[in-house]
Simulated assay, not measured.
Amino acid sequence: MTGPLSTPLVDPGDELTPGELSRYARHLTLEQVGLTGQRRLKNARVLVVGAGGLGSPALQYLAAAGVGTLGIVDDDTVDVTNLQRQVIHGVGSVGTLKVDSAADAVARINPLVTVERHAVRLDADSVVDLVAGYDLVLDGADNFATRYLVSDACTLTSTPCVWGSVLRFEGRVSVFCSGPSHDGVTYRDLHPDPPPPGLVPSCAAGGVVGAVPGTIGALMGTEAVKLITGCGTPLYGRLLLHDGLAMTFRELRVSVDSDAPPVTGVRDMTQACGVPGHPTVAPGDLAARMRAGAVLVDVRDDWERDIVSIPGAVAVPLADLEERGAAALPAVARGSDVVFHCKSGARSAQAMDAVASHFAAREENAAHLDGGILAWVRQVQPGAATY
């Protein structure tokens, strides 16, 4: 491939020490990398957005490859539910900041790598300056709002971005690059607008097989090495789709949307990417609503209720509500206000849609629990099990 993305992103750094020559010997024997390519890796600054399912393998392989400086962005702490797929963390890291846990893992793999920790949530005020300090970005974010922020910041700074996403048994990966000197494909060409709120479930709601982020994150690491050293053909303008159930890979072309307005700044997309605007009940207000006669309806699956439940809730699976509407509600919920809840709020919003016509014709009200049972645990019942 010719063009900006076949040119090495990074100039060679200092000569390799004897210890580095030994450590990176398998790279040095590769014609496409060699001494000069390894010095480029040594001099590279790579920002990894998210120390979760995708960031875990990417960070480990980039550290092992000898990338000189790794920036890690994540404001979350390690939870036991992360361990099924976020393999950079272990049991001993539960409760600690992910950036700290990931930095410790990087140091165990390769103490020659410098780690810059950014325990922050990216926003429109900070993202451009942060991205501008790095040669390359790996976007492993788990939400649409952050992906748009990262994409627009990369466009404004002409920083290439390796992007990946996963859900259930499927994964996607591509390379984006655009800016004043290179009118190229970006995340906005793939997704010009965010999907309707609630249409695409998060991994928390939809699930993900733990090894799939490993596959996609490793591919992201490979693309990063190629871009830094200038070897091979990067996934620029190509979307690689992986189906873990069928164990297939296929490729789609992505073209620049010539009618799209230019990116002149970044803005917060949180509201546009949120859940539908239904009436909500704050976790701290739920008990009072129930004492006033509201019926709490749990739309989760049986196994989820076995982990943690809110006292007094009645179980009505979402599938029943979507199939039968308000007829699926138990007698105790008829003629009463109803508050639906799920794990985090997405499925309870879908439940609201399923019964909307019923409540529109009645005096009773329907709402759903803001943030689901996870928010209820944090605010009302700290220490209860989560998942």
Rank of each mutant, 00 (worst) to 15 (best):
A319K: 00
C231A: 13
A102W: 03
V73C: 07
S158N: 14
R253M: 00
L130F: 05
P213D: 10
L59G: 09
G372N: 03
G230H: 06
V212Q: 00
P382T: 12
G325C: 11
A260L: 15
V200R: 05
A384T: 09
L318Q: 02
L149M: 06
L70S: 06
R26P: 06
G312S: 10
I216V: 13
P234S: 09
D152C: 11
A246M: 14
H182C: 07
V137C: 02
R26E: 09
N365P: 05
T264R: 14
G274N: 02
P317K: 00
T233S: 09
A356C: 13
A63R: 03
G244F: 07
V377T: 06
A107P: 04
G265V: 14
I228M: 14
A292G: 12
P12L: 10
H368S: 13
R347P: 08
Y61N: 06
A102M: 01
E304D: 02
V94E: 05
S348A: 15
G244C: 10
D152R: 08
L9H: 15
G371N: 11
G71R: 04
D243S: 15
A124K: 12
Y387K: 01
Q379P: 00
D129N: 12
N43T: 10
S22C: 13
D268R: 13
V73S: 03
I307H: 02
R117P: 00
L138F: 10
L97G: 14
L9T: 15
I373P: 03
D76K: 10
L35R: 11
L9E: 14
S258G: 12
G184V: 04
V131K: 04
V173Y: 08
A367K: 05
G184R: 03
T159R: 01
K42V: 02
A360M: 13
L83S: 12
V120T: 08
D129S: 11
L318V: 03
S178I: 12
D183A: 08
Q350H: 14
H278C: 13
V295E: 04
A346Y: 01
P276M: 06
S344E: 05
G171K: 05
D193G: 02
L16N: 03
A124T: 04
D123G: 14
A384G: 13
G37D: 11
L97S: 15
D14C: 12
M247Q: 08
L329P: 00
V99N: 02
A64T: 10
W163D: 04
H89P: 04
G207I: 06
L321H: 08
R305V: 01
A367C: 14
